[in-house]
Design a protein around this nucleic acid. Structure first.
Length: 212
DNA sequence: CCCTGATTCGC
DNA sequence: GCGAATCAGG
């Protein structure tokens, strides 16, 4: 019948208890023209199953400051896929200046007031001040550099679990901060987050904007 | 020109 | 929900 075909090699691993939902299976692939670019009989693009693992990894990596492009490479997906996914997840844009002031430093949040633009022509551009949280987190970048950068296996019960792998690493080789957590006796905030003071603050700031 | 992220839009 | 195309800025 219509689509006998292709066994999508969408494995991407799935260590989660439940990652592939029936919906995903139903989605299957196909769609001869998934996108305008692929119009015509172009190769079929295996749609990636965004498992929780991938989503979490992407989110963490991005929070580290890794650009979507690198994350995309790591996950093996396109940059737009990562951006789109993260945006859909509600992950804001940390875009910490800690990366490199060179290429791609554009924060400028704030949605366009006129999305009515037919996407082709010029779009509206709005300039909005950065949220204080972003600035604050940026100031704490030093803390990340001071992180122990240890593996998950070495993380203790009170070690910060904030991912700090600033390089491209496999999901299983992810490195974490490892600094003492703050919720033991921070005196200020006592969250259950297994993060140190610095990362806890960042996490809160992040959740505050979009608690996906 | 490169890079970046954001949004729009078809599937 | 997914990703490409497009846009927009550094």
């Amino acid at each position: 019948m219509s689509r006998p075909v292709l066994q999508p090699f969408r494995r991407w691993i799935v260590m989660s208890t439940r990652s592939i939902s029936p919906a995903a299976s139903a989605r299957s692939i196909l769609s001869p023209t998934g996108c305008p670019a692929a119009s015509s009989s172009e190769a079929v693009r295996a749609m990636v199953d965004w498992t929780s693992s991938m989503a979490e990894t992407a989110r963490d990596l991005r929070r580290e400051g890794m650009s979507c492009g690198l994350i995309a490479q790591r996950l093996g997906v396109s940059r737009n896929a990562v951006i789109g996914k993260l945006n859909r997840m509600g992950v804001p844009s940390p875009r910490e200046p800690g990366g490199h002031g060179g290429p791609g430093t554009r924060i400028q949040l704030g949605k366009r007031e006129a999305p009515e633009t037919p996407r082709g022509p010029k779009a509206v551009k709005l300039k909005d001040d950065l949220a204080p949280a972003v600035k604050a987190s940026a100031a704490g970048l030093d803390a990340e550099r001071l992180a122990k950068d240890i593996s998950l296996a070495q993380l203790g019960g009170f070690a910060c679990h904030f991912p700090v792998s600033g390089h491209q690493v496999a999901a299983d080789e992810h490195r974490f901060c490892g600094l003492p957590v703050a919720d033991r006796d921070a005196g200020e905030l006592k969250l259950n987050r297994p993060y140190c003071a610095h990362h806890a603050a960042r996490a809160r700031a992040r959740d505050g904007q979009a608690g996906a």
